[in-house]
């Protein structure tokens, strides 16, 4: 199908596959259409149908609450063109940077799962061919029998990755995460679209790094820290990571985080924030390279970061209250400029 996008500044046209969502067809053609979650939740990819027919495979997508369907509005991340279509966007749209990892639709096979806590699991997917992505990006993952995709950030960072590593939080009543918690899913084929996401880190940034993550939001930060450590970024710059969970038994990746700290003990600080319990007396003894503090992750970060906001880039991820709290803190208290606050909205 031919898709014509009339944006505020100009028009684009590109082809889409038979079952390909409008958003993914555009991104694959290096047209930087607006999106955040890419999985039907945030409403950022809203567009207006001017001409032609579309099909919406997931009419229950939560992001539809942002739409005025009577005016022809639809979510580009969900809908598939049935005929040639013309759509209109209220946004300014530009081309993707040359050299950006263009997202594509592909398949992967689940190779390994491993519980990290009672409600968080580690998932390893082998993509159909080695995959490039930027540190901090995510893939939209589709599993058999459940409509829609869900976005999961990669934990690892490597060139031509033969494994994509993810962290999955079990959500009660969430059919998707519950499916991924099933035993015996190794060997299952899943749909992948990606890499996606704008909260990326490149070592030419030249700024100190602040990472604030709640729960499974730590995934993308692991990728960013991996890249920064691999490139010896912390020889020149400081790094601060705050990882918030409820209690000590909800923590994971503490060994991996300790090894990052061990490589740069003088310039990388890692603090675990516990919101629901005081820091156990033995925590520091068991994890001597990590700091521990009680409180919500953005509050702990605010306490520890006072006076350290110059020349700083912040990356945020996690449940909406953690991200919103961190944004408020960084803008109102820290007076960080908005171009130095990076996150992808999943809700």
């Amino acid at each position: 199908m031919k898709i014509q996008v009339n944006a505020r500044n100009r028009a684009y046209s590109f082809d889409s596959g038979e079952k390909e969502q409008v958003l993914f067809a555009g991104l694959r053609s290096a047209v930087d259409l607006p999106y955040e979650c890419s999985t039907g939740t945030c409403g950022t990819c809203k567009a207006k149908l001017i001409d032609g027919k579309i099909y919406d495979p997931w009419p229950e997508a939560p992001g539809r609450k942002y739409l005025k369907p009577e005016q022809g509005e639809f979510l580009m991340c969900q809908c598939v063109a049935r005929t040639d279509i013309t759509i209109e966007l209220g946004n300014f749209v530009y081309g993707l940077d040359p050299g950006a990892c263009l997202p594509r639709s592909s398949f992967g096979v689940i190779r390994r799962t491993r519980p990290l806590t009672h409600d968080v699991t580690f998932l390893e997917i082998e993509p159909d061919r080695p995959q490039e992505f930027d540190a901090g990006q995510f893939f939209a993952v589709g599993v058999p029998g459940i409509p829609g995709y869900r976005g999961y950030s990669m934990v690892n960072f490597e060139r031509q990755a033969k494994r994509l590593e993810f962290v999955i939080k079990k959500k009660p009543g969430g059919g998707f995460s519950e499916w991924l918690f099933n035993s015996g899913i190794e060997g299952t084929a899943v749909n992948l679209v990606g890499p996606l996401g704008h909260a990326t880190f490149y070592p030419n940034l030249g700024k100190n790094l602040l990472c604030i993550a709640g729960g499974s939001g730590i995934a993308g930060m692991m990728s960013i820290l991996s890249r920064a450590v691999q490139e010896r970024y912390f020889d020149q710059h400081r790094g601060y990571l705050f990882f918030g969970v409820r209690t000590m038994k909800d923590t994971f990746f503490l060994e991996e985080l300790s090894s990052f700290r061990k490589a740069f003990p003088g310039s990388l600080d890692i603090t675990i924030a516990l919101s629901d319990e005081d820091v156990p007396a033995d925590a520091a003894g068991r994890h001597p390279l990590l700091g521990f503090d009680r409180g919500f992750v953005h509050e702990v970060a605010a306490r520890h970061m006072k006076g350290k906001y110059q020349n700083l880039r912040a990356y945020l991820a996690g449940p909406p209250p953690a991200v919103d709290g961190a944004i408020r803190m960084l803008i109102v208290e820290a007076k960080l400029t908005t171009d130095n606050i990076k996150y992808d909205k999943f809700s």
């Binding site: 950022t44 408020r328 803008i331 109102v332 908005t338 606050i341 909205k345």
Partner: peptide
């Protein structure tokens, strides 16, 4: 959104 008495920020995509 967020407002500090001089700058208004929309909390969704940080337009100011």
């Amino acid at each position: 959104g967020l407002y500090d008495g001089s700058v208004l920020t929309c909390h969704q995509h940080l337009w100011q």
